[in-house]
Design a protein around this nucleic acid. Structure first.
Lengths: 141, 141
DNA sequence: TTACGTGCAAACCCTTTGCCTTGTC
DNA sequence: GACAAGGCAAAGGGTTTGCACGTAA
């Protein structure tokens, strides 16, 4: 994202936006490191560590609203729990971006999933997120 | 999970565990409501609202260690950001349960995914998580 | 010059913990 | 009657916000 011009869309909606060292450097961190990072991690990697952590938070939400950054974890307000697979059937979740409700969805295949979601639940999928948890090479040894 | 007997495994490892109203009621909430809930949401749904929120937190981690409950969202320490798809290629993540590192993984099919993860990244998948984000029937209207 | 953005510090919210009491086994 | 578990309140850690100053445009 070297072209700040591309951000104009949102700039028009608001009055203007400014290209400042904190914002520039936060963006630099993301172009240098391709992995999801927390505010603290981004801050740790800034060229100029004098930049305030609060400014990093503000830059993150700034770029998120612009669509340049996305939050990997869209669940708000704390960790959520549910009964584990051992005590109920394996399933996934349909998370509504409108109202935030989470409903269960049984089954496990991707293409079929999207079809069934549309037909059975009338759920319109805008994007999906697939995560694997396990052990990397180093940790498995 | 009506049978507290099933929890004995862990009970043996530790000294013992007790069947108390707070734990019972927290579990009741999960058997009544099949959706991921935060501590606050669980608390809100307790029969007896006099039960302390801290006790709910303790019950949640208690049942998690027992394997009765699982945390839907395994990301620790705050929200993580990364460049959005518009600014880089579509990809998923491999999250190591050992060291917590997150590495990118290009591509998008489930079965093939697991094979490639094992071969290309030497990543041993223990479990996966698939999430869809979109609009439910009500919100799409 | 204007008003957006930053730094700083306090405020907030969710979660955890210490300590004493309660109540299960 | 022991000791695990709960209630209460304070502490902790991440995130947000108010305010005055600095600075990009």
């Amino acid at each position: 994202v070297k072209d700040w011009q591309a951000l104009t869309q949102w700039a028009l909606a608001r009055r203007a936006f400014r290209r400042t060292p904190p914002r520039q450097q936060v963006l630099d961190v993301f172009t240098r490191h391709h992995l999801p990072m927390t505010a603290a991690e981004v801050h740790r990697r800034l060229k100029n560590r004098r930049i305030n952590l609060a400014s990093v938070y503000r830059a993150l939400s700034f770029f998120s609203r612009l669509g340049v950054l996305t939050s990997v974890d869209h669940v708000r307000e704390g960790r959520r729990y549910e009964l584990s697979d051992a005590h109920r059937s394996h399933h996934h979740h349909l998370i509504c971006q409108g109202c935030g409700t989470i409903q269960d969805f049984e089954g496990c295949f991707l293409g079929e999933f999207e079809r069934r979601a549309r037909k059975e639940k009338r759920f319109r999928i805008l994007r999906h997120e697939l995560r694997f948890f396990g052990l990397c090479q180093a940790c498995a040894a």
